[in-house]
């Protein structure tokens, strides 16, 4: 019992505007989902690749300095470079190391997202997303939410922002941290001006991952009442889509990537294709690949068989359809219960 029972008191403050009400929901959702110890541990793990890529950036930071190259000219490091890239490319690199910064930075950050972080997105979304809408439907929290001065759109945006936030913690944030680290390791400030384009590219790819995974997960959460089952289904469907794409690719387009549209079937391949285009990997690496058969083979291995614009269109269509499903499921809570 309180020491002083003050009873009911009037409130005479000033209300905040309605434009950012979704942020209240998002913040509450982030706080609530952030209580999961599994999520916390996994995010820590998702940042581990930074150690490896941090070392890589330290090395390229040094190598792309003209002073370093000039100082090392004629020493054994040159032979290592020639061994790695082949003599023509190594010579070209030695002539203008700083000019290769945009290509190397973009390629490394693309690899960082391609190899580890997309997998982390799948897991994070599986950990965070399944309960977001299903629990609100089950506990009828929607009735409480929508009796407040918020719209269905506020609700959906708020919930989507929760997924986006956590996806951002394994994509945008570590990628930006990695970039900041790479700049910090670079002996000259020029590295920043040469590579600043990486920041909007990382942001764009991360946004694609956020919306492209968040919207379908919200829709599934609005449809599937069992969060645990949904988490497994999500991960299973993601992995199976990669397997299906690979099998279809081998069956329909054996030995060639030309016109191979089967990447569209794979969730990962679609995001890879978008990242490949956004980072302009082909445009940045093609000149170097023309004098290095090894680099050319690597580039062709990563080049998507289909036009990445198809992946963008597919992503937008899936996101729009998913949000429509959520909107229908959320509906007007009163309508459903009054029937």
């Amino acid at each position: 019992m309180p020491v002083v029972a003050s009873g009911y008191r009037r409130w005479e403050g000033v209300r905040r505007g309605r434009a950012w009400r979704w942020l209240v929901l998002a913040r509450a959702g982030v706080r609530l989902t952030g209580r999961s110890r599994w999520l916390f541990r996994f995010i820590l793990m998702a940042w581990l690749p930074l150690l490896y890529y941090g070392v890589a950036f330290f090395v390229v930071g040094q190598l792309t300095e003209q002073r370093t190259i000039d100082a090392a000219r004629g020493m054994w490091q040159f032979d290592v470079l020639r061994g790695m890239f082949g003599t023509p490319l190594a010579e070209r690199f030695i002539e203008d190391p700083a000019g290769h910064r945009p290509a190397i930075w973009s390629a490394l950050i693309y690899m960082f997202l391609h190899y580890t972080q997309i997998f982390c997105v799948m897991i994070v979304v599986a950990l965070v997303g399944p309960r977001l809408v299903s629990e609100d439907l089950r506990s009828r929290a929607l009735t409480l939410y929508l009796a407040r001065p918020i719209t269905r759109l506020d609700y959906i945006v708020g919930k989507l922002a929760v997924v986006c936030f956590w996806v951002g913690t394994v994509t945008l944030l570590p990628a930006l941290a990695l970039y900041a680290l790479s700049i910090a390791f670079s002996p000259s400030v020029e590295a920043l001006t040469h590579t600043i384009a990486v920041v909007p590219r990382v942001t764009l790819v991360s946004l694609a991952l956020m919306v492209g995974t968040g919207a379908p997960m919200l829709a599934l959460s609005a449809v599937f009442p069992n969060p645990r089952l949904l988490a497994f289904l999500w991960a299973g469907a993601w992995l199976m889509s990669s397997v299906a794409s690979r099998v279809l690719g081998l069956a329909l387009f054996p030995g060639t990537r030309e016109g191979d549209w089967t990447g569209l079937v794979s969730v990962s391949a679609n995001f890879d294709a978008i990242a490949f285009r956004v980072f302009d990997i082909d445009g940045l690496l093609r000149p170097a690949a023309e004098v290095s058969p090894r680099l050319l083979r690597t580039l062709e291995r990563f080049t998507p068989g289909h036009d990445p614009l198809w992946s963008v269109a597919l992503l937008l269509a899936v996101a729009a359809l998913s949000l429509a499903v959520v909107a229908v499921r959320v509906g007007r809570p009163g309508e459903a219960s009054a029937r």
Binding site: R131, S139, R140, A141, L142, L144, R148, P149, T151
Partner: peptide, 19 residues
């Protein structure tokens, strides 16, 4: 939205935000 800022609603059904 304007009216909901000034109206309080006690729903009939049992509802809460989980956890």
């Amino acid at each position: 939205l304007a009216l909901r800022e000034r109206v309080g609603y006690f729903p009939e059904v049992d509802c809460h935000v989980p956890d």
